[in-house]
Structures are given as structure tokens and as C-alpha cells.
Simulated scan of single mutants.
Amino acid sequence: MTSTNSSGPAPGGTRIGYTMMTEQAGPKDLVAHVVHAEEAGYDFSVTSDHYFPWLAEQGHAPYAWSVLGAAAQATSRIPLMTYVTCPTTRYHPAVIAQKAATMQLLSDGRFRLGLGSGENLNEHVVGGGWPNAGVRLEMFEEAVEIIRGLFGGGYLDHHGTHYDVESAKLWDLPDTLPPIGVAVSGPRSCAIAGRLADLVIATEPKAELLDAFDREGGAGKPRVGQLPVCFDRDREAAVRRAHEQFRWSQGGWPVNANLPNPAAFDAATQSVRPEDMAEAVPCGDDPEAFVEAVRPYVEAGFTEVALVQIGGDTQHAFLDWSEKTLLPALRGAFG
């Protein structure tokens, strides 16, 4: 079995992706959105995997893996990817390996398995508590090793610090394995990614994370970033929507990883103002503002950038605008 990147960077250019954000749309709508994204010409897609929305105003949290299976059948070209799944608490890593192998078969080789160490928001629901960051990374590293072991074929027995696997085997294993991506936020996660990942994932345009990934063995591998945007013909409406639904993003990762529910995110972001969101997120319909928001990712060394359009009921308008205006502007700027 081999593991390859089925959606690596286009020669000389930055790949632009679309995000199926499960926190802001129901399952049928999400599938319709990614079908439209494929038609609009996006290079790849990613999917969040949540049990809760960040804020109650977002209003959704369907099961991402069912959505992905449906999307695999409804599309034919666009690559699919979890961004990201936590393989430590809510899901056992042996089950993640089975799900990823099945998705790769259903999508005819278009799937990538993006993994991260998770958030209390989603993982607390199984009642196992929320360990500290050091323990979470220990669990995460062991989980990725189990997934890698099962991808290797044959039976796996594993008795580690955090997980036991007894005589597990993937009976439906694709010839081309789904590439594994690891989300990074600091030196320890970069080391795990460099050793175990086929690509690296980050949500901030920090070149130092990519440099650390390279030093740990990631040189030459794809690096995928993500950027929230808020298209609307009425810029003030876009700013209001960004504030209503995405102010949680201003909390920073150490905070966001530990808050337990949407009410906690609401309380923690009471001081975030609409004007703060207008500075943090490109809002409106000026394509140059969106190009300039993508630029830091390109300059930091990201080979792929997935856009998140804020607002579940605005996706089709955004995708129409993407096809006619935004994607040509981005490709004109970044190849």
C-alpha cells in the first residue's frame, strides 16, 4: 500500500479550497454546497467535524462522516478532507482508520484524513473528561501511530499508554491510502506532524510552524491553511454576520480548545466588537480585500488555502461570486 497526496499543489500556484462548515448548515445543504463548489471550480474541499457549533447563532452540527459519504457520491472531481477530526476521545483511532479507508474507496481516491488534537467543545460529550494539553498530545501521537499501523494492512495488536487495540484489521483497504494531515499549533505538534503526516494543517499564516514542520521531516510536503471570509453585496451586513457567527475565532487556540459549550464561547467573546471582526475577516464584495487576506498564507509558504464563507444561507451566492470574480482574482494573484 502507498500513501500519496491525491490533491497536491498545482505546479506554480496556490490551490484554493472550499470549506463545508458543519457548524452552520444542515447535512443536505452541505452536500449541495460542495457540489456547487465543484462546479464553481474550487481545487479541493475540507469539512469540519463537530458535535456542537461554536456559537448557538450558527445553529448546526450534523455528523461529518455521513456528509462526506454523501458528498463523495454527489461529486466526481473535487477532493474531500476532514479539517479536522480528533482521533482521541469521541472516536477511537481504530474506528477513524476504518472510516478513512472507506471514504477513500467511496471517493475513488479523493479523500485526505486531516487530524487534530481536538477541543473540549466536541470531545466532552462522551464523558471522559478533558485532559491537559500535554496528555492530549500524547494521546494524539499514539492515535496517529495506530491509524498508520492499520493502514499498513494485516492484523494490529497495540497496548499503549492510552489505547488498546486487539486483533484489528481493515478489510476494505484502498490501494492508495488516504494521506494523513496533522494540524499544528506549536513545537510538539509540529514534531508529530513532521514524523507521521503526509501534509501539515494550520489555521494561522505562521511561517514558523511550517519551518518547524520542515525541520522535523516535513520538507516538500503540502501545507494547508484556512481563512474565514464573509462575502455580501452589503458590506455592513457582512460585518454584522461575521460578528454574530464568527466572533469565537478571536479567542485564540488555548482558549478555544478548552471551552465546553456554545454558551461559554458566547460569554468569552462579549468584548469582541463588529469592527474587530471587520479587521480580522475580509467582508463585502471587493475581491482585492480577499486576495490580500490570502496573501499572508502564500507568503508564509502554504500551498493550499481553504476559504470559509461565514453564513450557512449565503453559500450559493458566495459560490456564484467565486466562479465569476473571486477565483479568477486569486488565480491571477497566486497562479
Results as ranks from 00 to 15, higher is better:
residue 7 S to F: 15
residue 9 P to I: 03
residue 10 A to K: 13
residue 10 A to W: 02
residue 11 P to R: 07
residue 14 T to N: 01
residue 16 I to C: 00
residue 17 G to W: 09
residue 18 Y to S: 04
residue 19 T to D: 03
residue 20 M to D: 01
residue 24 Q to M: 09
residue 25 A to W: 04
residue 27 P to H: 03
residue 38 E to P: 02
residue 40 A to P: 07
residue 45 S to C: 11
residue 48 S to C: 08
residue 50 H to P: 11
residue 52 F to M: 08
residue 53 P to Q: 06
residue 55 L to N: 01
residue 57 E to D: 13
residue 57 E to G: 01
residue 57 E to K: 12
residue 63 Y to H: 03
residue 64 A to F: 01
residue 65 W to L: 10
residue 68 L to G: 08
residue 73 Q to Y: 08
residue 73 Q to N: 07
residue 77 R to M: 02
residue 80 L to M: 08
residue 89 T to E: 14
residue 93 P to F: 10
residue 95 V to G: 05
residue 100 A to G: 13
residue 100 A to N: 06
residue 103 M to P: 03
residue 124 H to C: 10
residue 124 H to I: 14
residue 126 V to N: 11
residue 128 G to R: 15
residue 130 W to C: 08
residue 135 V to Q: 15
residue 138 E to G: 15
residue 138 E to T: 07
residue 138 E to V: 02
residue 140 F to R: 10
residue 143 A to E: 11
residue 148 R to A: 11
residue 148 R to T: 12
residue 149 G to A: 14
residue 152 G to T: 00
residue 158 H to D: 10
residue 161 T to I: 01
residue 171 W to Y: 14
residue 174 P to R: 01
residue 181 G to A: 06
residue 181 G to C: 03
residue 184 V to P: 14
residue 186 G to H: 13
residue 188 R to T: 10
residue 190 C to P: 11
residue 191 A to E: 15
residue 191 A to K: 14
residue 196 L to V: 09
residue 197 A to H: 09
residue 198 D to C: 09
residue 200 V to R: 13
residue 203 T to Q: 09
residue 204 E to I: 11
residue 208 E to Q: 11
residue 212 A to R: 11
residue 214 D to P: 00
residue 217 G to A: 05
residue 218 G to D: 14
residue 220 G to R: 08
residue 223 R to H: 13
residue 227 L to C: 06
residue 227 L to Q: 12
residue 228 P to I: 06
residue 228 P to V: 10
residue 230 C to L: 07
residue 233 R to L: 14
residue 236 E to G: 01
residue 239 V to P: 02
residue 245 Q to N: 02
residue 246 F to Y: 15
residue 246 F to W: 15
residue 247 R to P: 07
residue 249 S to V: 04
residue 249 S to H: 10
residue 254 P to I: 01
residue 257 A to M: 14
residue 259 L to W: 05
residue 259 L to R: 02
residue 261 N to Q: 05
residue 265 F to K: 00
residue 265 F to M: 03
residue 269 T to E: 03
residue 272 V to D: 06
residue 278 A to Q: 08
residue 288 E to Y: 01
residue 288 E to P: 02
residue 291 V to D: 09
residue 292 E to W: 06
residue 295 R to H: 04
residue 296 P to G: 10
residue 298 V to K: 02
residue 298 V to I: 05
residue 303 T to M: 03
residue 303 T to R: 02
residue 306 A to H: 04
residue 307 L to F: 12
residue 316 H to I: 11
residue 325 T to Q: 07
residue 331 R to V: 09
residue 331 R to I: 04
residue 334 F to H: 09
residue 334 F to Q: 12
